[in-house]
C-alpha cells in the first residue's frame, strides 16, 4: 500500500466464518480495505461474494472471526455500521410504482437525509440516467436504468464506505465505463469501496486491489502498481485456472 492517507483500514474481515443453514459459506475469509481504496472481490457464482457483503451489514452472523467497519465490530455496532455504509444490493429493486425521484427521496428521507432537487438531479446526471426518465415510474425502466437509479441513491447517501454487489450488472459498455470513472472519482475524494463482481475485466479497470474468492476462501490477491491497472490476463488466468 502506498501513501499515508491509505493507511487507515475501514473495512476488515478477520478469519470470517459464516454458516447458512448448515453449509459453510465463508471459511476463514480475511482481507482489509484501506480508506480511499477500491477493492474488488472477484469470484464465480456461489463463491460467497454477496454473503460477504451481507455479513458486513449484519444480515449474517459470523460463527467465528469478525467483520469490522471503520474499526467497529459489525455484530455489536450494527446501527453505526449501517449509517456509515451505502449498500447497493444485487439486483437492486426499488419501488416500481414510484418515479426515480420519488424512490430516491423516499429512501433518503428514511435515512434522515435532506437533499435538494438539484442535488438529486445532478446525481442522476452523474450516473447518466436519461433525463426524460426521471419523472417516470420505475416499472417503465430497463434493468440498466434501475441499476443507475440505485447507484445514484448509494451516492446520495454520502456514506464514507460503499458496499456494491455487482454494480455494473445490466449496464451497457458505455455505462460501465462511466460507472468505473465515477467509482474512481468517489475513491479519490476519500470514499472506500468494496465491490463484488464476477467480471474480471471490470474489476481490473477500477480496483486498486482484487481478492479472488473461491468457495468462501480467499485464494489470491492482486494489487495495482502506482498509476497502473491490474493485469487482466494474470487475473483471468488465475480465475480460470481455479475453476473446477
Amino acid at each position: 500500500m502506498g501513501s499515508s492517507k491509505q493507511d487507515k483500514t475501514l473495512i476488515e474481515s478477520k478469519s470470517l466464518h459464516v454458516q447458512i443453514k448448515d453449509t459453510s459459506v465463508l471459511k476463514g475469509l480475511s482481507f482489509r480495505v484501506a480508506k480511499g481504496e477500491i477493492y474488488a472481490l472477484l469470484g464465480g457464482n456461489g463463491a460467497g461474494k454477496s454473503t460477504t457483503l451481507k455479513t458486513f451489514l449484519g444480515f449474517n452472523q459470523a460463527s467465528s472471526g469478525a467483520a469490522f467497519i471503520d474499526g467497529l465490530d459489525v455484530s455489536s455496532s450494527l446501527a453505526s455500521v449501517r449509517k456509515k455504509t451505502a449498500y447497493l444490493p444485487e439486483n437492486a429493486t426499488l419501488y416500481p410504482h414510484l418515479t426515480a425521484k420519488e424512490n430516491v427521496e423516499y429512501f433518503l428521507s428514511l435515512a434522515g437525509l435532506n437533499k435538494s432537487a438539484s442535488e438529486i438531479e445532478n446525481t442522476f446526471d452523474l450516473v447518466a440516467l436519461q433525463k426524460d426518465a426521471w419523472e417516470r415510474q420505475l416499472q417503465t425502466y430497463s434493468k440498466g436504468m434501475r441499476q443507475k437509479t440505485a447507484i445514484a441513491l448509494a451516492i446520495l447517501r454520502e456514506a464514507p464506505i460503499f458496499l456494491l454487489d455487482e454494480p455494473t450488472s445490466g449496464l451497457d459498455p458505455v455505462a460501465i465505463d462511466e460507472f468505473n470513472q465515477l467509482v474512481t472519482e468517489l475513491a479519490s475524494s476519500g470514499a472506500t469501496i468494496l465491490m463484488v463482481t464476477h467480471d474480471v475485466y471490470g474489476a481490473c479497470q477500477v480496483a486498486n486491489r482484487i481478492g479472488l474468492l473461491r468457495k468462501g476462501e480467499l485464494v489470491g490477491e492482486f494489487e495495482a502498481n502506482q498509476n497502473e491497472r491490474i493485469d487482466t490476463e494474470v487475473v483471468h488466468a488465475a480465475f480460470a485456472q481455479r475453476q473446477p
Partner: peptide
C-alpha cells in the same frame, strides 16, 4: 428484494 436496502438505509 428491497428488505436489505430498506433496513440498511433507515
Amino acid at each position: 428484494g428491497r428488505h436489505e436496502l430498506l433496513v440498511t438505509t433507515t
